[in-house]
């Protein structure tokens, strides 16, 4: 009955309303077309050309893609490898740390909201600027970290002279910046688990660790899936941090797939070599495909995993 009343009350949708809706949304649609759809179309078109911006563009079919998958693309694949090492390495620390802190802060702990605010603060700051701060902290001669090491009697380390060490500094910076936001996601997830389940398990004699692994973790499944996917894609897209901190040094060992692709577009400014926008566009498509494939594979695998429970 109440539905009938509501239906009767509902005012009619008028023609003027339609015109107004289109007018209200038109600018957003134009913006989307210009800044999202147009660049995609541009990329799809020019990846099939040799296009330097100076000489007339020449259609070359799939030559740009062939170059990526032959020796000419070795630098790119090195960057892809670096990106995965970076992402997996930092997530192995970041996600468990975030989960642990979320668990510790989910109880009725005193100072809980203060801890939460402090841990989330790094996520608020500029990635590029924090890259510079950590570059200073890990400086070879006067860096604070080296000062600690030498105070403890160790040898000063040339952090940015070695590929592996530079990568570790990048990972440390990124974990420092992102554990807080992932902790917040986990805290939201933990709130949705009914307390009764843990209480029942405790009555049956389960220890806190048993409760955590057999109740909390499986119940957190969907949240964990979202957090990990979000963090994984974010890490694979790392650009600003690398550009600000190492810029790929030493010798391309910290170059990442996004920063490498970006540099192919702007190479005449960076290194004085001629551009091939077509090749850069092809790299963009391959990079986008890698990100898309990772998303699909990840969702498949985690779904299989959750069916086991």
């Amino acid at each position: 009955m109440s539905i009938a009343v509501r239906k009767a009350k509902r005012a009619p949708w008028r023609k003027l309303d339609t015109v107004q809706s289109y007018a209200m949304i038109s600018l957003s649609v134009i913006g989307l077309a210009l800044f999202v759809i147009y660049p995609l179309g541009w990329t799809l078109r020019w990846c099939l050309f040799r296009y330097s911006g100076i000489l007339a563009p020449r259609y070359v079919g799939f030559d740009n893609f062939i170059r990526i998958f032959s020796e000419g693309g070795a630098r790119y694949w090195q960057a892809v490898g670096n990106t995965f090492i970076f992402a997996i390495g930092k997530l192995m620390v970041e996600i468990p740390l975030a989960l642990l802190l979320a668990k510790l802060l989910s109880g009725a702990l005193k100072g809980r909201s203060l801890f939460r605010s402090v841990f989330f603060m790094p996520s608020m700051l500029s990635v590029a600027v924090m890259g510079i701060v950590f570059f200073y902290l890990f400086g070879s001669y006067n860096g604070v970290v080296n000062e600690w090491i030498s105070a403890l009697g160790g040898q000063r380390i040339q952090w940015f002279g070695d590929g592996t060490l530079s990568m570790i500094v990048l990972m440390v910076t990124s974990v420092w910046q992102n554990f807080g936001i992932n902790m917040l996601f986990f805290m939201t997830g933990l709130q949705s688990i009914p307390l009764e389940m843990n209480e029942a398990a405790a009555i049956d004699g389960a220890s806190s660790w048993q409760q955590f692994f057999h109740i909390t973790l499986p119940m957190l499944g969907p949240v964990t899936q979202m957090v990990v996917l979000n963090a994984l894609l974010g890490s694979l897209k790392v650009t600003d941090l690398v550009l600000a901190m190492t810029n790929g040094a030493p010798n391309g060992k910290t170059e990442m797939m996004m920063s490498y692709t970006y540099k192919q577009f702007f190479s005449s400014i960076q290194s004085g070599t001629a551009n091939n926008y077509g090749y850069a566009a092809a790299l963009t498509i391959i990079t986008a495909c890698i990100l898309g494939a990772i998303t699909v594979i990840y969702l498949r695998v985690t779904r299989k995993g959750s069916e086991l429970y």
Binding site: S28, L32, L34, F35, V36, I37, Y38, P39, L40, W42, T43, K237, T239, M258, T261, Y262, F265, F266, Y277, A280, L283, T284, T287, A288, L291
Partner: peptide, 20 residues
């Protein structure tokens, strides 16, 4: 709207945008 927001590739499509 949703589809395009998700496929927006960010830094690697910056060149056509700035050129335009």
């Amino acid at each position: 709207f949703l589809a395009t927001m998700f496929i927006a590739a960010g830094s690697i499509t910056i060149f056509p945008i700035v050129q335009f």
